[in-house]
């Protein structure tokens, strides 16, 4: 039964991804990204990571897609419509396909020693995040803070520089 749900989520992810790289209108591409993120959250649910599925929906579906749409609104959107791929798209297609072969063939010929699926509950996850991974966790918050301050500094319109 979970294979059926996984297939639905995988179809969402792949169609959303193809929509991102193939859409002519950039707003449609952003909405396809949202579809792909929701599908990824479904895959996380099937992979028994309920907390990360919620985080995925909140961060990507909520924050990331909204940030992209907002920045499209702040820049003039009609400049972005009807965008084409650049001239090297056949080479890009060849590179992507050969990489898919390079990744897919070892996956397919590998004799997967499948073990049973096991879930980890949220309290275990939080405990290990705040004990074993406490220093990387604090560093990640520092990285977020620096990135946000940096973003504000970069977009700020300072006097004398702009004409």
């Amino acid at each position: 039964m979970s294979v059926v749900f996984f297939a639905i989520a995988a179809i969402l992810v792949i169609s959303g991804g193809i929509g991102v790289v193939a859409a002519r209108n950039i707003v449609y591409a952003a909405l396809s990204l949202l579809v792909a993120m929701v599908g990824t959250a479904g895959v996380f649910l099937i992979g028994l990571a309920e907390f990360l599925a919620l985080v995925q929906l909140l961060i990507y579906g909520g924050a990331v897609v909204i940030v992209i749409l907002f920045s499209l609104m702040l820049t003039r959107i009609q400049d972005f419509e009807f965008l084409k791929a650049n001239r090297q798209w056949p080479i890009a297609l060849i590179v992507a396909m050969s990489l898919l072969g390079l990744l897919g063939i070892p996956i397919l010929i590998e004799d997967s020693t499948t073990t049973t699926m096991g879930s980890t509950n949220i309290s275990e996850l939080g405990l290990s995040l705040f004990s074993d991974w406490a220093i990387p966790f604090e560093l990640a918050s520092l990285v977020l803070l620096i990135a946000l301050i940096g973003a504000v500094v970069v977009v700020r319109r300072d006097n004398g520089e702009d004409k």
């Binding site: 792949i14 991804g17 790289v21 950039i26 499209l72 080479i91 890009a92 990744l103």
Partner: peptide
């Protein structure tokens, strides 16, 4: 699924012109 999605992303990075895409 991860391999397919990664290759779609590679194609997008190489083939699109807009920095947002």
């Amino acid at each position: 699924l991860a391999a397919i999605l990664f290759c779609i992303g590679i194609y997008g990075v190489l083939a699109r012109r807009s920095a947002v895409l």
